[in-house]
Design a protein around this nucleic acid. Structure first.
Lengths: 134, 134
DNA sequence: CCGCATCCTTTTCGATACTG
DNA sequence: CAGTATCGAAAAGGATGCGG
């Protein structure tokens, strides 16, 4: 008779796996970077520093909540810097750090790819949909 | 008195905006590509074709549901091809298309960036957390 | 102007069990 | 082996109102 039940073994395996994932840099960061708003915000700042409301205007469709949330995590990760000018009313500027700039090149490359190859993707979708009715 | 209430104007603006977003190629594709599993699956296939279960093993922690879902959308978008060999048991191979291969380079560049700069990001996080208690 | 807190809806996702 | 179906938990996301 085994010293562990099947359920216990499964739980153990899951715990090990969770620990592994938490230590895996690629998955951690990739999960963070795999965010629609991250790409758009970084792309927006690639051209130069912007104020909070300017980013909101440049990144179409982002709610204040998501914008703030995205900016906070990117600031925490050292991707961008946040500068508060204590005037009245307050002025807050965001800019890419050198680290962020190195990432921006890659993300805009992906964005450019999307723009360049969208027609091919659309064609592929239409073909797929016509070949797979239902 | 206006012919529309503020709420109605807001709703109208949102409808217009939604229509705009649906037509925007960049946002459509970028949203699709900004997916953790997409990056990982494409990266897994970058080295060469793989069978369904091989991908599942290579991409740690993906459930059958998400794997199938991801593979289906990528096939529909023309990023990868699906080949069924009607043996017993069935054998299904997935491979990047030329279109997918052109994308793979960019995504693995992002993945490499994550691996290379993870230490910097971690350091930035620790600094941020110590400077922002609570 | 910038942003936080709250509520609430929608969507996503993982676990599980089952089929050809 | 390669999926599909279903369920429930979890998270994301938007709306709104307030505060510095």
């Amino acid at each position: 008779m085994a010293t562990l039940t099947a359920a216990q073994r499964r739980e153990q395996a899951r715990a090990d796996y969770d620990a592994f994932l938490r230590e895996c840099p690629t998955n951690q960061l990739l999960g963070r970077l795999s965010d629609k708003w991250v790409s758009l915000v970084v792309a927006a700042l690639a051209a130069g520093p912007l104020r909070y409301s300017d980013i909101g205007r440049k990144v179409a469709g982002v709610s204040p909540k998501m914008l703030t949330q995205t900016l906070r995590t990117l600031e925490r990760d050292g991707i961008l810097s946040r500068t508060v000018t204590p005037s009245v009313p307050v002025r807050v500027d965001y800019a890419l750090t050198p680290l962020g700039a190195s990432l921006a090149g890659l993300l805009t490359a992906v964005k450019d790819w999307a723009e360049t190859h969208f027609d091919e993707v659309r064609t592929a979708r239409e073909r797929y949909d016509s070949e797979n009715p239902g």
